[in-house]
Design a protein around this nucleic acid. Structure first.
Lengths: 183, 183
DNA sequence: TGACGATACGGAACGTCGTTCCGTTTAACA
DNA sequence: TGTTAAACGGAACGACGTTCCGTATCGTCA
């Protein structure tokens, strides 16, 4: 499964570090050549390790997405109300998204290359969101029937551009949504 | 003020029609050459009449934005509660946005060329939104202090991608926001 | 250790796009 | 109808994502 050759492994690591730095500095839409330059490799090497930009983005942020996914059940078990847990979890997701320049935008792009990215987030986080919604609905705190995908996509959309314009308060919008979920 | 030469006027009209058709078919991100081809002109002619893509988009949708702006005071004067008027007005805005492929996305783009577009929407619709918010706050229906720009941008963001994925219900998300505004 | 085959590398090359620029055309008017 | 200024068209340019292949390097085995 892991690459056989040592140089391949080295380049993959260098690319992940270079991409992470480039994403922070220039957003996830940074030019492929920039990432390759930072890592000291040719552009061909990028495409060999990460066939699409989405693969690279997923690899860079995998750990943080995983942490977010695991936080869901933990918040639910912490003892507060399910609706409060849902609210806190969503805010964690928002905090993650708004600090990644352009990630929220890439998440909703209809470009075929980003389907992998969208798919990964949905696959990993949607069940967590659904579990929190179910718990809150079972507790009679929110109106049942809220679609988890719509909620997650909506929250993701609300984060778009939040880092560019200080006048736009994405967190406030998300708080309105969470409040609007209540019975 | 109006162009002196008849061919210039003709081309401008042809471009507006071609752009409107192209936007419907391929979204507001359609290639410049496509629009020029539809209108039977060279690409240079596009840039002469509409220096930026935003100028063209604004020109195409100006009438509908104007209608939306004028609907605000009308809804307020119709006699219902201010919060209901605000909700209806926002839904009008949503109905407008979700039928224009990619317009919501372009609205929040941080590309400098789209500042004109963003600026036009803000300039024309923000005061209307502010008036509705003030009326609802004065009536004690919503918590005061909601920033109109945040609300408008948030609603616009919620509409992004709504036309591409039938599983995502942008209107439901906006309804949650409107409900969340209530005291 | 040295040579060989497989694997991975680098960057030139290609197509697409937005944008600019200028030689050519054409409308307006005297 | 001749003159002139305005407008036109599309070639040209640079940036970008992506592909491709000649070359370099790694791992292995005699």
């Amino acid at each position: 499964m892991s690459p056989k050759r040592a140089d391949a492994e080295r380049n993959k690591t260098a690319l992940l570090e270079a991409a992470a730095a480039a994403f922070v500095e220039s957003g996830v839409d940074v030019a492929v050549r920039d990432i390759a330059g930072r890592a000291g490799v040719g552009v061909g090497t990028i495409y060999r390790h990460f066939p699409t930009r989405a693969d690279l983005i997923v690899a860079v942020y995998q750990h943080q997405v995983e942490a977010c996914a695991e936080a869901g059940p933990a918040l639910l078990a912490a003892g507060g109300s399910p609706h409060a847990a849902l609210g806190e979890w969503i805010m964690m997701f928002v905090d993650f998204l708004v600090t990644k320049h352009g990630l929220a935008g890439a998440l909703q792009s209809d470009d075929a290359a980003f389907q992998t990215l969208h798919g990964y987030f949905v696959e990993r986080l949607l069940p967590v969101c659904a579990q929190l919604l179910d718990a809150a609905a079972a507790a009679g705190e929110i109106t049942p029937g809220m679609d988890p995908l719509t909620l997650m996509r909506g929250v993701g959309n609300l984060c778009i551009g939040a880092e560019n314009d200080p006048r736009y308060d994405a967190r406030h919008m998300v708080e309105l949504v969470i409040k609007g979920l209540l019975i």
